[in-house]
Design a protein around this nucleic acid. Structure first.
Lengths: 151, 151
DNA sequence: TGCAAATATATGTACATACATTTAATGTCA
DNA sequence: TGACATTAAATGTATGTACATATATTTGCA
């Protein structure tokens, strides 16, 4: 369905404004689908995202600063997302011995196993009836990258 | 900057996963810019969005159900966003006489003037050095619309 | 050495999101 | 008509986002 029909606004000021609204709408649509996929595993999208970064570092630890640097949304509050993961025993937090201001965050065995079981379901992979083919995906990636080249 | 560099992840499982992450990242980037633009006017993005819908209805009222139907993020909580706008005297809320379960929400004169003054700044318009030209914008819109055609 | 600046993280507050539940009004149909 | 379902909105709770401020540690340099 075209964005005009999705939000029942037949006319946009210009193609520029329409692309912006379309982008935010589509991202929200995607977020909802992802959140629903993670829910059976008791994870939110930001929690999953942080777990994935920690696995990338494993067995080395990550600091909060590293997580923020690698997160999709850089302004979100990594500290509190780690709180939730720690409560669920999916990560550990220990004071960094080399720099006692920093905190070493590590994914646990349970965390690694949870990631594996999520990925085994295949919900993160493209399927045969994906609406965009590989070439279109590449085109989309290029347009998005280019869009952010301002200032 | 390419998404690989933005989030310092050199390899993605596939173009599909990369497009998803790119989309969410770019939407977040855009949201931050928009939020910063609205901030001097004391509005958040969802508040601005609802005001714009109300202007589209004006002088007719809108119900909460209509707002949800037209909002970008359909699962957000329109009731409480209207609370904030009402506190700022930008909208009014009255019980709908025809159906006393429903609430008639109307944009006030102050609300209309605020929207005008925001739009006068031109922050919502494309400028000469926009990275994507009109044709590329159209291409992006088509890809996004197509992406959502699942199930 | 000692003290200010910088760094790393945590905490506070307002707002938004996601989803379940509640309250009130209206519809329906036996 | 009266019980029950449906509808419209508000409210509760957990989480996340955005941004300011606080706390503790380390660094730099006079």
């Amino acid at each position: 369905m075209r964005i005009e029909d999705e939000i029942k606004q037949p006319i946009f000021r210009n193609e520029y404004q329409k692309a912006h609204i379309n982008l935010i709408y589509t991202a929200g649509w995607l977020q909802l689908r992802q959140a629903a996929a993670f829910k059976p595993f008791g994870l939110t999208s930001p929690q999953f995202n942080i777990l994935r970064i920690l696995r990338g570092q494993h067995p080395l630890p990550a600091t909060v600063a590293l997580l923020i640097d690698r997160m999709l949304d850089k302004t979100s509050n990594a500290s509190r997302i780690v709180d939730r993961l720690e409560e669920k025993k999916l990560v550990t937090r220990t004071v960094c011995p080399a720099n006692r201001r920093a905190v070493d965050i590590r994914i646990t065995k349970a965390g690694l196993e949870l990631l594996d079981s999520i990925e085994e379901t295949g919900i993160l992979d493209a399927n045969e009836n994906a609406p965009l083919n590989e070439d279109e995906m590449r085109q989309l990636n290029d347009l998005l990258d280019k869009m952010r080249t301002v200032e």
